[in-house]
């Protein structure tokens, strides 16, 4: 989780990542940021996030992003 927050911080500094409840709805992560994030996550966790994983539910909060990463690591 800490690794994830670090990555998020790098992509967009100054957001209280653990408290935000709707990263997509509040326009904190737009499509460009998501692409950056996916690139970083793929490298960091050695997973492959595909377009199908890019749905609002997966990127709603730091928690959900983390859950997605864990799920993909197991696959």
């Amino acid at each position: 989780m800490e690794e994830l927050i670090d990555i998020l911080e790098e992509i967009k500094p100054g957001v209280d990542w653990e408290k935000e409840t709707d990263l997509i709805g509040n326009h904190i992560l737009d499509s460009l940021k998501i692409v950056q994030l996916v690139g970083a996550l793929n490298d960091e966790f050695d997973i492959e996030i595909t377009p199908i994983d890019i749905v609002p539910e997966n990127f709603k909060t730091a928690e959900t992003i983390y859950a997605m990463v864990k799920r993909l690591e197991d696959e």
């Binding site: 499509s31 996916v38 793929n42 996030i49 595909t50 890019i54």
Partner: peptide, 15 residues
């Protein structure tokens, strides 16, 4: 966004 932008930007060459 879903079928062009993500397809392009998440593709291997693009990565």
């Amino acid at each position: 966004r879903d079928y062009v932008f993500y397809s392009v930007s998440l593709s291997r060459p693009f990565m």
